[in-house]
Design a protein around this nucleic acid. Sequence first.
DNA 1: TGTTTAATTAGACAAATTCTAAATAATGTG
DNA 2: CACATTATTTAGAATTTGTCTAATTAAACA
Lengths: 213, 213
Amino acid sequence: MQPISIILADAQYLIRVGLRHLMDRMDDIEIVGEAKNGVDLKILLKNQSPDVVILDHLQTNNFGNDVLKKIKDFSPKSKVLIISSDDDKTNIYKTIESGVNSFLTKQCNEEEILNAIRATAKGEKFFCSKVLNFILEKSFAKEEDCDPSPLSPRECEVVKLVAEGKIAKEIADILNLSTHTIYTHRKNIMKKLQLSSTSELVRYAITNGLVTP
Amino acid sequence: MQPISIILADAQYLIRVGLRHLMDRMDDIEIVGEAKNGVDLKILLKNQSPDVVILDHLQTNNFGNDVLKKIKDFSPKSKVLIISSDDDKTNIYKTIESGVNSFLTKQCNEEEILNAIRATAKGEKFFCSKVLNFILEKSFAKEEDCDPSPLSPRECEVVKLVAEGKIAKEIADILNLSTHTIYTHRKNIMKKLQLSSTSELVRYAITNGLVTP
DNA sequence: TGTTTAATTAGACAAATTCTAAATAATGTG
DNA sequence: CACATTATTTAGAATTTGTCTAATTAAACA
């Protein structure tokens, strides 16, 4: 039976040493290449098609944003196992969404890592407990924020203009409305979002990406 | 001649494996203990006093904020070598300021790591090239942003309260001043910062870290 | 077809802000 | 020390902005 072939793509030297040390002891796993950046990885993938690419493409941008696409282009049969140095939920969500097979963080222990490699090679998905909890949290915390923006289109326009620093009169001029209309909209918005001041509205708009700070 | 004694304190299993693998091959270096969190470390330090503690106390908070102080308390002669998974300049500055001997990032290669350990054991300081560049940048990039905040202390207070959503009257009550005082401060602030609306002031405060969004 | 939601507006009144002007204390400069 | 600058403070009048109450129109919905 063929061992599982692995390409190791991680910018951190120590992680590569650690993983190699771990896998060298396993008869069913063989590292066929090691890359410390996207260029290395591309060259390796041109010549071989590993079962699994173990990748840390976050934290430092050594592997570029399109690294996953590149891997699929050069070696469509390869599975991708992320071992991330980044604990940020949003980044983890983004990466999982972009279609990796498995996801570990660097806090994982030997057992989880080896299980993950073997599962990934079989085409299964594997998430370490920490990441799994994040996923569950995202999927089931729907009661909390099922409401990304309960604002009507018109209200959104008003919020944006308010956050840009416009006062009611200016907004009224821009939208060709009465100032009273703007006041009413603004009051309704604040009520919906449970805000009590214009400044809070500005902060809401910034944190929700309605305007660029 | 005695080998350099090391305690390895890192929450990441792979980093510990990698470092151990690296150091086991060196005759002049001996790992006398391994800790994956602050509690482990404390127990180790009660029983031994290593030449060097290799520590990652950032990223995850496994080692607590006062870990450096703890090390100095339990084992004053030990030197601290940080191998950080965190690339954030501000965090790096903060850690260096708090008095560690040496600082590497996890991007460093074998040579830098071994040099760092040997230098640190001798009581020297060692910073990897990346960190060194950060330090230089901080020390010599004074012409660029000599002006982090041209606001007077009082004006800063006012900005914060404005950004928190308070109106002039509330701020006046909080600071025990006349509303007119607040108006004047606010006008001066906006003039200094070349802002034309309260919303812009809020955004200024957020982007400059005066308030947490 | 009635009901809900979105969008719109006015008038009276209340509140917040601007403008003009100025006083005091602290700090720094020649 | 005298002078200039800056920080901090304040008032009154005039103006602007916003709130509250109430209502109309249009669209969407069941």
